[in-house]
Design a binder for these strands. Structure first.
Lengths: 111, 111
DNA sequence: ATCGTTTATCGTAAATTTACGATTAATATA
DNA sequence: TATATTAATCGTAAATTTACGATAAACGAT
């Protein structure tokens, strides 16, 4: 990737792909499912639920945080994680209409 | 990635992340938007619409095809591309409920 | 003050992704 | 038949991702 021409894609294309990329790993899907299931902040025990080393889980959490899908708040020695409104809103505003669009388009497809 | 423990994630987590990964690049979002917009097969001129070399676009098309999001049919010298029902169905069955789940969970969040 | 717990970060290795130009294969067209 | 067109593939380079263990930083408990 010598040259990045990313500037030539529009804002919503870039944001959408950023969100999708953040969700492009089974561990990160598992993490957000966990956070949704508990419906509350989870302090740390995410690592116990995943078949990955602590440092790797921490890296995945960082990726989700960077994309704005989750947020983490330090609480003593531990860190409490929960879903971030911002990212979920973006998923609803960007991705839900896109899927709907794709669905109707597919039905009118010639193949 | 010396060791892949992917077998320890469940099928829907793996399929969901596979779809997300395929959509994790602005060029590939642009491609599916193009295919949806035209509502018909597009023979080749996708390259003209993107700020990328022909070989790179071909690579992105291959990635979308591998994930089952688009399909391509050879038609003479050209190849006709369109959205694939299979992939769009999977997006509806796997991702739409997930977003809904995340949304209600976020509303009940403590942070 | 010391010790244990928790989690982020560092260093590192291997795999994958992204991008390009060049080439190839297949089909139209002149 | 020769030539142009289209699109996939090859070869390659650079960046990024994924994973791990080791370490460090911060806090709580003893």
């Amino acid at each position: 990737m010598a040259i990045t021409k990313a500037k030539l894609f529009n804002t919503s294309q870039k944001r959408t792909s950023e969100l999708m990329k953040a969700l492009g790993h089974p561990a990160r899907i598992a993490i957000i499912e966990l956070l949704a299931e508990r419906e509350t902040c989870i302090c740390g025990d995410i690592t116990d639920e995943l078949p990955l080393a602590q440092s790797t889980v921490s890296q995945h959490l960082k990726a989700l945080k960077k994309a704005g899908i989750i947020q983490g708040e330090i609480d003593g020695v531990r860190t409490c994680y929960c879903l971030s409104e911002e990212g979920i809103e973006d998923l609803n505003e960007l991705f839900v209409p896109l899927i709907k669009n794709l669905t109707t388009a597919t039905q009118k497809n010639c193949c």
